[in-house]
Computed example of a mutant assay.
Amino acid sequence: MTEPPVGRRERKKAATRQAIADAALRLFLERGYDHVSIRDIADAADVSTTTVFKHFPGKEALVFDQEQDRETRLVAAVRQRPDGESVPDALRRHVLDTWLPIEAHPQRAEFSRLVDSTPELSAYAERMWTRHANALAAAIAEDLGVDRDDLACAALARYVLEVPALARGREDPRAAVETVFDLLTRGWSPPGRTR
């Protein structure tokens, strides 16, 4: 399926939004989250504070500027998977395609320290994680034709969203992701035992 061409206005809005987010992250990493104001970010991005708020609802959202797109892609991994591909396999592919590049990003460790050391950002990340889990669970339930609050769908969504945390810091992150998804699709067996 081809994407419709993006107009000039949309490209400019996206470029402005990205410039604001990039300036914010740079300043947060340099000075610390609490020592950067919206005015500082607006000045660094060469926009007004009103423009910052047109693109972002609050300061925390500047750190997680791509999260809405990530949630959309997560749900699309379920809804737009190829015929015959299982939900777990589609989500495995999605995690491998999207999380591994994030994990390899040179600023990933700095970003994680920023979030972990800032209570507002940690709380925001937790709320965002819950929202993503709910959206994914609803998409899985809809796909399977079961109630939105189906426990199995909710559990699968939460487990999938924990995969990056479980795989982070492992010697071979790809193998770690594969191991967790194998566990999700085949069930658990004690380490060292074959089935």
Rank of each mutant, 00 (worst) to 15 (best):
Gln107Lys: 12
Gly84Cys: 04
Arg131His: 14
Arg92Ile: 03
Arg79Trp: 01
His132Leu: 05
Arg168Val: 01
Pro119Glu: 10
Asp147Ile: 05
Val177Lys: 07
Pro191Cys: 11
Ala152Phe: 04
Glu162Arg: 13
Ser48Val: 04
Trp99Asn: 05
Met128Gly: 10
Glu67Asn: 13
Ile38Thr: 15
Asp147Glu: 15
Leu144Asp: 11
Ala45His: 06
Arg17Pro: 02
Ala15Phe: 03
Ala176Arg: 10
Ile102Cys: 00
Lys13Arg: 15
Met128Val: 13
Arg39Asp: 11
Glu110Gln: 15
Trp188Ser: 11
Glu126Tyr: 09
Arg31Thr: 04
Thr16Glu: 11
Ser112Phe: 00
Asp116Tyr: 01
Glu3Phe: 06
Phe64His: 09
Ala138Asn: 07
Thr118Pro: 02
Ala14Asn: 14
Pro5Arg: 14
Thr72Gly: 08
Ala90Glu: 07
Ser122Thr: 13
Ala165Thr: 09
Arg127Asn: 11
Gln66Ala: 13
Asp172Trp: 03
Leu184Met: 10
Asn134Phe: 01
Val163Asn: 07
Val115Ala: 03
Leu136Glu: 03
Ser189Lys: 11
Pro57Met: 07
Arg127Val: 00
Cys153Gln: 06
Glu30Asn: 06
Thr130Met: 09
Ala125Ser: 14
Trp129Cys: 01
Ala138Gly: 07
Thr185Arg: 15
Ala15Gln: 14
Asp69Tyr: 05
Ala76Met: 06
Asp150Tyr: 06
Ser48Gly: 13
Leu74Ala: 11
Leu74Met: 14
Val52Lys: 06
Trp99Met: 08
Phe181Leu: 10
Pro57Ala: 15
Thr98His: 14
Arg148Asp: 13
Asp172Thr: 08
Glu10Ile: 02
Arg193His: 11
Arg170Leu: 12
Glu142Gly: 09
Arg92Val: 03
Asp89Ile: 01
Arg127Glu: 12
Phe64Gln: 09
Pro164His: 12
Pro119Tyr: 06
Ala15Arg: 15
Ala61Cys: 02
Ile38Lys: 04
Val63Lys: 04
Arg148His: 06
Ala155Asn: 08
Leu184Asn: 02
Ala44Glu: 12
Leu74Asp: 02
Val6Leu: 12
Asp143Trp: 02
Ile41Pro: 01
Val78Cys: 08
Leu151Ile: 08
